[in-house]
């Protein structure tokens, strides 16, 4: 396949399949969770239904509590560099915005290419640091499985190929761009099936605990 056909392939059928897998997969996973028995708590709440605390915790748990900062904040910051850089690259780059506009009709002003490249570079660097941490920390080595490494690879590849396309590295531009889009497609398709699903689940799990602790009047 030449560059043009890889590009067409990635933009066309693969993208459509990836999008279908993304939507179907998220729905499948959420239905699979919420179709299970719902526990009922008959205890008399101390402080309301807990809904407010649930919503509050969705936001507040984005930053570690004071008690734990000394031990975890540094890696949280690295993780934020990765996540924020990634979000800027996805949502701030004009071609990405055009894609979103075509799909949803929504659009917003883009950022200069240099800013995007900088954000993507920072994000990739942070991702490498996080991998190094995962490989060297005894705790993370103990916890890590296929999903952790595979999801890392699928998150890293679009960043690198995107930067290569932007800077014209790797020869044939169409081929590199095609591979970048293909990497994005695969990431979309994988999202519901691995740990990257936390982008959706995070609000539910935080909210559940926040509500449960909130109705007890316990710290969240």
């Amino acid at each position: 396949m030449n560059g043009a056909s890889v590009l067409d392939f990635a933009r066309g059928p693969v993208f459509e399949i990836a999008l279908a897998m993304l939507i179907f997969g998220i729905a499948w996973r959420l239905v699979g969770i919420f179709a299970l028995r719902r526990p009922v708590d008959y205890s008399e709440p101390r402080a309301g239904t807990g809904w407010g605390s649930g919503l509050r915790m969705i936001v507040s748990r984005s930053w570690p509590r004071r008690e734990f900062r000394e031990r975890v904040l540094h890696w949280d910051i690295v993780s934020y560099i990765f996540h924020v850089g990634y979000a800027v690259a996805i949502l701030g780059y004009v071609p990405h915005i055009m894609l979103i506009r075509n799909l949803t009709g929504l659009q917003w002003p883009g950022l200069p290419g240099g800013v995007i490249a900088f954000a993507a570079g920072l994000s990739a660097g942070a991702l490498l640091a996080l991998l190094g941490h995962r490989l060297t920390s005894p705790v993370l080595r103990r916890l890590s499985n296929f999903d952790d490494y595979f999801s890392w690879l699928l998150a890293f590849t679009p960043l690198v190929t995107g930067l290569m396309a932007y800077y014209g590295i790797g020869g044939n531009y169409q081929m590199v761009l095609g591979l970048h889009i293909l990497a994005g497609d695969i990431l979309f398709a994988w999202l519901p099936f691995g740990k990257i699903m936390h982008v959706i689940l995070l609000a539910f799990s935080r909210g559940t605990t926040g509500a449960a602790y909130g109705r007890r009047g316990a710290p969240i």
Binding site: I33, L36, W75, V139, L140, D148, K195
Partner: peptide
């Protein structure tokens, strides 16, 4: 297993931060 435990078991990202809060670790 119920919706709450399922959410918890699905949501873990293996960040290992819980170790840093545990007195045993």
């Amino acid at each position: 297993f119920n919706t709450t435990s399922a959410l918890y078991l699905e949501a873990c990202v293996h960040c290992g931060q819980c170790a840093e809060a545990c007195q045993y670790y």
